[in-house]
């Protein structure tokens, strides 16, 4: 297992390098530079040149990249151009808000998605199945920002039950949780569709297996058959989807953080793109890429716990 983890981490190195190069090129090649964002539209030629020089933007691109790479390898993500602060500090300050939202989003999508999928599978072809299909299709089709605004309009502005914006008062758990409910639900609704559908199809497959028939024939209660015998075996593709979904949700947090004004790395990234704050864009992208790699690794490991065949495969190879 350790060997597997080590090889996966090694395999991630070229991926991350690729991300570094691609992000660097994209942010530097799109038109515009941070000068207009810093100096506003009234800057004089002299101000522009002085600032460009001070930021090292007059160096050739490969020199800028070499400088950046050296920095990153030393664990330094650079300093924000507009915020004049270390990028790592900015990311660390905002990471908790994003991670908590992504996790809450996953939880919401699992809580809604898996029971819905199970229900649809066991009532195959009936009204419940159809309603579940309709619900998931609408949930998936509705853009998360729209669902977010809708939820905010109803529950924050009209009813006033939950906050419309922010991440709650730090240290006040209840206010932090309250501020998570709406964005996590909006995220979860977008993510649950895939989970529900995979659960349904995977369950349908498993429900026809011999061991399920055997279990039923033994007189095991239906509820136990579904949860103990069927769900456990149907879980592998579902876990894959949850893992993949986590990445998608991490992306979705960018939108939710904008709609609900949450101080996470998603909103940090969006603002940095508009301000052409290169070091921040690069730093946040790198962090997102690293978390993607980590989530995939964790997904791989979880598989092996769920499916003994894969576990044996690794052991025999080793």
């Amino acid at each position: 297992m350790l060997k597997l983890i080590a090889s996966r981490i090694l395999a991630a190195v070229p991926t991350l390098f690729g991300v570094l190069v691609a992000t660097f090129l994209i942010v530097h090649l799109i038109p515009g530079d941070p000068i207009s964002a810093i100096l506003g539209d009234e800057a004089t030629e002299e101000q522009i040149q002085t600032t460009r020089e001070a930021l090292g933007l007059n160096d050739p691109l490969y020199v800028q990249f070499a400088n950046y790479l050296t920095q990153v390898l030393q664990g330094d993500l650079g300093t924000s151009i507009s915020g004049r602060q270390p990028v790592a500090d900015q990311i660390m300050a905002r990471l908790p808000a994003t991670i908590s939202l992504a996790i809450a989003g996953v939880i919401a999508s699992v809580i809604i998605g898996i029971p819905l999928g199970m229900l649809a599978a066991t009532r195959r072809g009936g009204k419940t199945d159809f309603s579940a299909l309709l619900f998931t299709t609408v949930g998936e089709a509705a853009p998360a920002f729209w669902t977010g605004i809708l939820l905010s309009t109803v529950f924050a502005i009209t009813l006033g039950w939950l906050p419309a914006t922010g991440a709650g008062t730090p240290g006040d758990t209840w206010s932090v949780i309250r501020s998570l409910i709406l964005p996590a639900t909006a995220l979860g609704l977008a993510g649950m569709a895939l989970i529900a559908r995979i659960t349904r199809s995977s369950m349908l497959e498993v429900l026809n297996e011999d061991y399920v028939r055997t279990a039923r024939a033994k007189g095991v209660r239906e509820w136990v058959v579904i949860t103990r015998h069927a769900l456990r075996n149907a879980a592998i593709p579902v876990v894959t989807v949850i893992g993949l979904n986590f990445g998608v949700l991490l992306g979705g947090t960018v939108v939710m953080e904008t709609v609900f004004a949450r101080p996470g790395i998603g909103s940090l990234l969006v603002n940095a793109i508009f301000a052409r704050d290169y070091p921040v864009v690069q730093g946040v992208t790198l962090v997102i890429a690293v978390s993607f790699v980590l989530v995939n690794l964790v997904t791989d490991i979880v598989y092996r716990f769920l499916d003994p065949r894969l576990r044996d495969e690794v052991t025999s190879k080793a």
Binding site: S152, A156, I157, G160, T165, T258, A261, N271
Partner: peptide, 12 residues
């Protein structure tokens, strides 16, 4: 940052 969100926050 978002104008609509800011407006919603004001309305709330």
């Amino acid at each position: 940052p978002d104008a609509t969100t800011r407006h919603n926050s004001f309305m709330a």
